[in-house]
Each structure stands twice: as C-alpha cells, then as structure tokens.
Design a protein around this nucleic acid. Structure first.
Lengths: 224, 224
DNA sequence: GAAATAGTGTCTTTGAGACAATATGGG
DNA sequence: CCCATATTGTCTCAAAGACACTATTTC
C-alpha cells in the first residue's frame, strides 16, 4: 500500500555577502506584496521543474546582481523547511551563500544592507531569514579560519592590508598588521605576488597580490 | 502574471555512522524494489506534509535503528536535488548525518556496512548515495578536528584509548597515545574523569571518562 | 624632516611531536 | 619477574603574538 507522496514548493534563498567601506553587507530586497509587505528579505525564488539546485542559485545570483554566472564564490549553506516558516503554506528553501568583491549597485528593490543591525534585530527580516542570515555569516566567519575564502571579498589584485581588513571586518577583531603579513605571505599558495604596487595615498606603496591556488589553510588562521 | 509553482517530492536520507571493531560502518538497507533492486542504499523516506525536516530525520533514525529519539548526534548534512538523481522522477533529498555509539543490530533489511569498500566503489550504492556518503564521512572527519564530536562514537563511559581509536579509525591515521592523552585531558570540558576504572584485560587499568560540556576544541586537534 | 603605511627581524610563549620514564594491572 | 597498557614528564621544534626597527612614499 504505497502511501501518497506529499509534494512541496521549493525555493532557493541567497545570502550574498560583500564588504563595503569596512562593513559587512548583505543583499536584501524589499517585499512588494504580503506577507511581510515592505519588509526586507533575502533574495530568492522558486526552483524550476527541471532545474538543478546550483543552477537555480546561480540564476538568482546573476538576476539580482547583474553579475556573470561565474562571478564570486557560491556554496550551499543549509535547508530550512519548518512548516509555518511561510504563512502562505509549506515551502522548503535551500539557502546558498555567496561572497562577492565590490559588486555593482543592484537594480530594482534590491540593496546592500549592513549586516550588524539585521543580526541584532530578529524581526528585521521577513520569514526565517534572520536565522538564515545568521547561519550564513557564521559560516563565512568560520571558513575564513581554515580556507582562503577571504580573498573572494577582494578584487583581482589587492594589498595585504586590504585582505587583513576583510578579516577584521568579518570577525570584528583587530589583527596585528605585521604578524598578519608574515602569516599570509608565508602560507604557500594563499596569495601570489605581482610586480604591481599601489599608488599610495599615504605611506609607502604596497605590493599587489592575486589569489593563489591554495583553497585550504594549513595551519589555520585562528580567531582569538 | 504569477507563474505556476513547481512542486517536488522531498525525502530525508541518513548517513548513520558508527565505529565497530575499529572500522567505520554506515547503516545501509537493501532495496527490495526497482530501481536499483537488490542494491544497497542509505536509509531514508519521504517527508510528511506537516512534518519538520529534523522530525523526519529523527523519525527515520529511530525507525531504522530502534533507538530512542534523543540517541546520538544528528545534524543536517546537505541537500541533493539533481534532476535525474532518481530515475522515477524529480526528488529532492535533505541528507542528515548521525553518529552513534554501539547501536543494536538493526531489524529488517538494514545492516551495518564498512565504509571502506563503499567509498572505493562509486557504484556500490544506489542513486547518488555514494556522493552523500562521501560528504558525510568527510564532514565527520573534518568535525573531529575542531569539535568534541568523537566522543559521540563512544559509550557513556570510555577510556582515553577508546577515544583515540575513534580518531585513528575515522582519520585512518596513527596518533601518539601519550600526546593524545595530554591533549584530550588538557582541553577543558572535552572529557570529565570519573573514579571508575576498566578491569584491564591486559596492562594497567585505564580511568573511565564521560563526555564533557565543551562542544568545540580550542585549539583544534589537527590531522597530519 | 614629520607623518603614515609597508614590510622585516627578533624575542617570548604556546602548543605539537618525539620519546624516556614511571605506574599498575595480569600472567 | 615479565609483559602490556596507562599516565606523566622532558626535550625540541614550529608557529603565534608582541613589538623594535627599517623602507618608502606624501606633505
């Protein structure tokens, strides 16, 4: 006796993070219709019938940012399916985490929002998006420790100080510039030196680096 | 113009790991019907209409093992939804990872299978379960480094040597018993000493410990 | 030259790894 | 006693953190 198989609406929601002016920002959209009309929410949308989940995430990402499909870093975060998380009915959402370097100003009702106030107020975002954002930010924080992901927040060429400010912004800590420099340049494959330098606004010009081939950091760069 | 919302069958699949006789095992079921009839698969089942995802995972876990709902460790692993991963149609599965200490022999067609051969042969398991198992084992391996999860593979009271063999089994490495002992007993909250001892089969009797309150390890216990 | 930032060198401390030495049970 | 395993101690090395010092730019 085969029991009837329940079917569910499935969406993809995106936590798209970037660092702007030394503040961690997330892309939000303002909801134009109930429920949560006028409230900020994470961008997302329904998965198409024959669409792979990563394809849906990539599609939403470029729709919302206007960036090409291969821009930045994208990984699956987690899946949220509490009955009642959407007042309209049962919706299961697969959340993805994206990290971008200096993306363009988005079109439509989308905008970059500082994560600080959103994390402090559990009701600032619609649905259970506060929880999803919290999980996304925590994942990003944790991965900076043992992966080279921080460089995904930087443009193709960047200084060690820029990379350090990424860590300081995401972690909310201070790092010793000198020890950080030694650690980063001493980890094989993390960054690759170019022969370009910044035209310094103040102080000695800094060498520019590119992302190296390494994906994981051994030993890790631990938070205090 | 609201586009029609596609609906999907959603299942929960389980990677249930345990260590038996110094070998990492996973719970598998033998499929009784096509597709993949007679092939081993991870246990799982459809999510009920108003059932939270963790509830579905817990339900499947106790159905398959006969264990109470609060036994062992259970966490969400990842979600797999490739069109075509199930030949019968589009099915999205939310995979969970469970870690158990000396569970009972399961009933029905379920059985404990050594992970080694399953990981070596991508076609040993039905569907995309090879990928799911690989991800689950890799998650467990990684989490042993920076969490106290290894103790979840141990009975309520265990020796440091038992705990060490968990690490050696899951990682496939050798660890120095003396350095491991210092590290584990020196990490606050990882293990708590009891005043019980083993009745030694050979050698000096070992003190028995319980799981401590700590959940994360700082600094981590890194693989070589 | 003064100020600012980049980058190097050095010392101290912490913790991992190697391994000797000691403790305590069973034959 | 001998053997095996548990547990402690000691030494060495690698890497993190503190911080003096040098380098190179703008003003």
């Amino acid at each position: 006796m085969p029991e009837p198989v329940a079917k569910f609406a499935v969406t993809v929601d995106l936590v798209i993070l970037t660092v702007q002016r030394d503040v961690l920002h997330v892309l939000t959209v303002t909801r134009a219709v109930p429920p949560f009309e006028g409230r900020a929410a994470l961008p997302g949308g329904f998965v198409h019938p024959d669409e792979p989940l990563p394809a849906a995430a990539t599609r939403e990402l470029s729709d919302e940012t206007g960036l090409p499909h291969d821009a930045g870093h994208l990984e699956q975060l987690a899946t949220y399916g509490e009955p009642g998380r959407d007042p309209r009915g049962r919706v299961i959402t697969v959340a993805y985490l994206a990290l971008l370097a200096d993306p363009p100003q988005p079109a439509g009702s989308a905008d970059w929002t500082a994560t600080g106030p959103l994390l402090a107020d559990p009701a600032a975002l619609a649905f259970d998006h506060h929880r999803i954002l919290s999980d996304g930010v925590e994942r990003a924080r944790a991965k900076l420790e043992y992966s080279s992901l921080a460089a995904q927040f930087c443009p193709p060429e960047f200084t060690i100080a820029q990379l350090r400010r990424i860590y300081e912004t995401v972690w909310g800590t201070r790092l010793d510039p000198r020890n950080f420099h030694r650690k980063v340049t001493g980890t094989p494959g993390f960054v690759v030196a170019t022969d370009h330098h910044t035209s310094s606004d103040r102080g000695r010009p800094a060498r520019l680096y590119r992302r190296g081939p390494a994906t994981s950091l051994h030993p890790p760069l631990l938070r205090r």
